[in-house]
Design a protein around this nucleic acid. Structure first.
Lengths: 352, 352
DNA sequence: CTTTTTTGCACAATCGATGGTGCAATGAAT
DNA sequence: ATTCATTGCACCATCGATTGTGCAAAAAAG
């Protein structure tokens, strides 16, 4: 309130006001004053002035000088689904609790964009980077490496940096088994009635497909590759795959595994085009959890990936210097139909 | 590739390599070289060197000098729901297309946190700020004002800065009417069968409640205030409100208006505790769109708020200097049950 | 062949904070 | 009273880019 001017106070302003030198002011305000043997009285005086004048450090200047910024980056493919937005939420909380500033950016699954965005972050001297769901983790790694930026892959692994990912194979096995068991409860199920839709040629998709195939073969036999439809990640393409199946068979498969919640949106688009009653007897599994997806008018098993644990593990890895480029698996959780899990939002205010 | 070293090249490195002065290099690399009458040949030479050595400007240094950063901030209450994550997605795209760098941060609906986060952003000299869904927009305004930071409110209006918000009253009217008409299709509806759940004492909630009340009174009569349950925004509290109603009446209301998708999660928590069949005949309206919420096993009307238009309008306002602190309404859209809208994700790669 | 104009660039101050170094004043030890 | 150690702080170079200013050399005008 004492400060009526438009410009922000700097250490030089406080230096004049306090009669101390700028370096003394700096030391007091960044906490290194004990080490610099500043008198307690001097420190108190300056701190008081700082409060009065609403001083806040210019973090660009600090960053320039110290070539660190206090920023921690999270590179996301997209915001607009529950898995990644929930990850962003956990990330924010974790970074804040460490007294740093989270910066979340998305790169739209475009390898070139990924590298550019990271270049930009590096230009701001970010201290650490979480690379989540990158299309080209190793490409991003090279960029980080050159700048000496510590980084870790989340969700999709790279070969050149440590990675923390969901146990896609294990999760896919659980999910496939749940789908098939549920379908079997109503009578025999021929193998050609169990499908997988979505995903593309990335590590996660491959592992999920492998898990699906192994469990399906073990439980039902049949040609394991016949019923797999990798459509990419777009809802539009996924919907087309459902339409194609429907055109051929006059119905959807008895049970199917959907690679992600984004692909599950493709199912919604398909459903919007067809009367509801036709599909009362399908069993769906989705490798992602969404609280509304869990309550659709047919059984939907979901896999809830533990993004919070991944973030925590990521920080742990970044904490250990010279971490080897190994991949850590985080077990996901099978969520039965009609389940409302709590999420990071529940940690917020407004609860009482 | 030519650059094998660990440290990033600076204009001084290029200055030595090219035999020009640092200021010339700077001018060439930031595009102001024509204005500074640098020879085309010199420019080409330096640009070539820059590419060879993988030069990228240190944006902290640039920001320090020019007291602008190229950063545009978006302050969000939370990431973890479709409305805000979709807003973040649109925001990213828009900011990128303007050659700036988006920074998205969340403040968890905590007024103190909001101000602190904005202080931090200001310390990085961000150029513009979008304040979305702030609990205390005017408090944030004061902080921005003091720093001379251009800003605009989105979603929840303030009194001291221009605001762009959803037409909550109009949207609530549409939604309420849709709920009641749908309920009436199956027979008469007493006014005490139509409720509103969720929201708290903010502008959006008040307007929505007003719209609900006006339409309900006009269509059904009855005491307009008896059936309103403002539970705050948490899923947990919303679920409790449903439980309380259920304990009293042995069922849910025939039709009800849910204030937001976060509140709708509270309904899921309630449903998880009760057998599905009991609620086959409810009609729900939700002030927010969620692609999975639209396909729940009962009719769900939704309001899709046009976050993209709000962002665009926000930029337009920030573009006009000295914009007055007026509130702009963006009309939302009523989405009938079982509708799968396309979103920002559809603009991505991977479509073909 | 001068004088004027234009071209092309170098110089140096500056943004705000940091941290190594040096030095006066004070107190303790001899 | 002299020497030495400690305390408390000021000085200054530095981080990398931007930008106003000034001044040669080249080109145009006379």
């Amino acid at each position: 309130m004492t400060d009526t001017g438009k410009k922000k106070a700097t250490i030089y302003d406080l230096s004049v006001l306090s009669g101390s030198s700028p370096s003394t002011v700096s030391a007091v305000l960044n906490g290194s004053w004990r080490k610099r043997r500043i008198k307690e009285a001097t420190a108190t005086l300056i701190q008081g002035l700082a409060v009065d004048h609403g001083y806040t450090a210019n973090l660009q200047a600090r960053g320039l000088r110290s070539s660190r910024s206090g920023l921690v980056g999270l590179l996301l493919p997209v915001y607009d689904n529950r898995y990644f937005s929930s990850m962003a939420q956990s990330f924010e909380a974790e970074v804040r609790s460490r007294g740093q500033c989270p910066v979340v950016v998305s790169a739209c699954r475009d390898p070139e964009e990924e590298r550019q965005v990271v270049e930009t972050l590096i230009s701001y001297s970010i201290d650490e980077l979480f690379i989540a769901g990158a299309t080209d983790p190793d490409g991003v790694h090279d960029v980080c490496e050159k700048a000496g930026l510590r980084h870790v892959n989340i969700d999709l692994p790279g070969t050149k940096a440590p990675s923390v990912i969901s146990d896609n194979y294990g999760g896919a096995r659980m999910l496939t088994q749940a789908i098939i068991e549920r379908a079997l409860a109503d009578g025999p199920v021929p193998p050609e009635e169990i499908y997988l839709f979505g995903g593309r040629d990335d590590h996660a998709s491959r592992e999920r497909i492998r898990g699906f195939r192994d469990v399906k073969r073990a439980m039902l036999g049949g040609d394991p590759d016949a019923c797999i439809r990798p459509t990419g990640y777009s809802p539009g393409m996924t919907a087309r795959a459902f339409e194609a199946f429907y055109a051929d068979h006059g119905k959807l498969p008895r049970g199917f595994f959907v690679n992600s919640s984004i692909n599950l949106e493709g199912l919604m688009r398909f459903l919007a085009q067809h009367p509801h009653e036709t599909f009362a007897d399908i069993v769906v599994g989705c490798y992602d959890y969404d609280p509304f997806g869990s309550f659709l008018p047919f059984p939907v098993f979901m896999i809830r990936q533990d993004s919070e644990a991944m973030i925590t593990k990521g920080f742990e890895i970044l904490g250990t210097s010279r971490a080897p480029a190994v991949t850590h698996l985080v077990p996901p959780m099978l969520v039965p139909p009609r389940t409302a899990l709590t999420g990071p939002l529940d940690a917020l205010k407004d609860i009482e």
